[in-house]
Amino acid sequence: MSGIERYAAPRTLEEAAELLSAGGATVFAGGTDVMPQANAGRLRFQKTLLNIGRIAELRGIGESNGVVRIGALTTITELLESPLVRGRFRALWQSCDHFASDQIRNAATLGGNLCNASPAGDTLVPLLVLDAQVVLAGKPNGTLATRRLPLAGFLTGPGRTLRAAHELLTAVEIALPPAGFDSEYFKFGTRPALDIAAISIGLGAVREGRVLRDVRVAFGAVAPTPVRAPRVEAALEGRIADDAAIEAALEAAADEIHPISDIRASDWYRREMVRNMLQRMLCDVREG
């Protein structure tokens, strides 16, 4: 039987960090991951149920000095409705558009999606492409301390991250990409949303004439975490997206992904889809 002894809904980060330092807390914001996981027995409630959804300072999307800060409590719907996200982070916006359903987008938070660390997590792939950093805050020694980690390092396995038990993910920071940078997110599925990606691909680059610069590629659901694909990026960096470059990128992708077979897709099919869909995305880039 679950044994939650205490419920807390702090209003400040200080307060929340304090509670976390005491240990034994289950943290939730939207609840869309925690609730079904608890019902299915995949998550055991700790003694304290900590609702971080009331901490105002974890909300909002803002830009200063070329860095966009997205508060951890920003819902997927809020991301979809942000002109900044839509204008500058197209892949992220697309991933939100493909995210579950309206009801879940209204509740689910960006911080929650990151901490849930699903290999198929929708926002993770575009955030990798955007070189996002996560901001973690905690009060290990009585004072609030903050640290920043690149998202790629933060994710360590299915449902696992470098967030310490006493820490909260407070925000995601994205340096505004260079002028001309555009990004694209592809999620494999038969319907617009309400689906778990069998594979997903994020692609971003600056086009200088016909040449691609600052190429960034990430894949979802082909490894224990969503992953950047440095060899694919290298195969495309500084090149024209011609047949040879595309073929080199596809070969590199085949080496860089390690998909598994599960009820959603076989490893073979995942490989085929990464190949075919990356090819399609690169051909679209070539055709402008």
Partner: peptide, 19 residues
């Protein structure tokens, strides 16, 4: 189980009652 909370729709099954 769709309900509206502070104006937006949510799945009541995914929401903690305490929230």
């Amino acid at each position: 189980c769709t309900i509206r909370v502070d104006g937006v729709t949510l799945n009541a099954c995914l929401m903690f009652a305490v929230d």
